[in-house]
Amino acid sequence: MEDLKRRKRLRHSLIALFTVIIFILPFIITNNYYRSVLVIIGIYTTVVVGLCLLMGYAGQISLGHAGFYGLGAYVSGVLTSTYDVSPWIAILLGAVGTGLVAYIIGIPIFRLQGHYLALATLGLGLIIHVVMMEEVDITGGPSGLTKSIPYLSIGRFELNTDFKYYFLVWIVALAAIILANNVVHSRIGRALRSVHGSEFAAQSLGVDTGKYKLQVFTLSAIYASVAGSLYAHYITFISPSPFGLMTSIQFLVMAVVGGLASIWGPIFGVTAITLLTEGLKYIVPKMIPQAGGEYEIVVYGVILVIIMIFLPEGITSGIVNIYEGWRHRKELADVTSGDK
């Protein structure tokens, strides 16, 4: 199939182009604050790629991904700071552990559907958050870990600046995108999309829908965990607050804004929301000096509603659709002008 190969080539060249841009960017942007924002975007992208795989392809919602993100961060943080475990091994252990937690908890909660499943994952996220707050001996409670978390290093090369860390984070994010892309264009990806199209038909063709939903849930939890570990080694201090419900909602908004059923969606969604959040942090205190941190949730709510009404498939598909609509109108105009 020539057509199939051409599409594959196009996908590969898009990824290659994107990789080049990613590696040039930190040389153009020299401001440390902007670089740190790019690092955070890379970390969030990894989480949201996994979440999009779950929501866009398996059609399952998760309101608990900040929990998995936090698990990764805490396993890395606690093991490296308190027990002097090698950071790389800690990341691996975090990923495996989080994957196991997601798998085992996924077995019962994937018997639920729709809103019930969303609520179950919400509860799961809250439970993990409560454990972080209450297990003071291990986690340090609400005030966080007392010992500082070491920087990651490759051999004796310590990744202790935004510039150096940027490359690690984005290599991971790119790997996350490429691997997710592999899944989407595989037997498993098709099986997942078929479930979205018609669960009856999928089952009647031998697709074990429950099995694949659970597997992708686990995979997306592992993505979140690795991102959490990277976050811990970047900030070198963790407390429970960045891993609460608000973060889960933030991930969800990023996924929806970017567009669920596209591997490029996460990057757009994460970038848009992160820039917006950073912008708000700057603007809102100037406009409303007494505003607390919670105004963000209002903004997220408004964005979610607007996106759902005007670009229900997210920015990425939205732009494509608008472009195609415009082209269609242009063609139509060309045809009708020929009539005159």
Binding site: R187, I188, G189, R190, S194, G197, A201, L205
Partner: peptide, 27 residues
Amino acid sequence: QIFNNMTVLENVMVGRHTKSKTGLLGA
């Protein structure tokens, strides 16, 4: 019960599901 979110070919490719065995790791 067509998979409207997929191409014609992909629809039929899902039909090969039981005759193939790539798992998540292979994917």
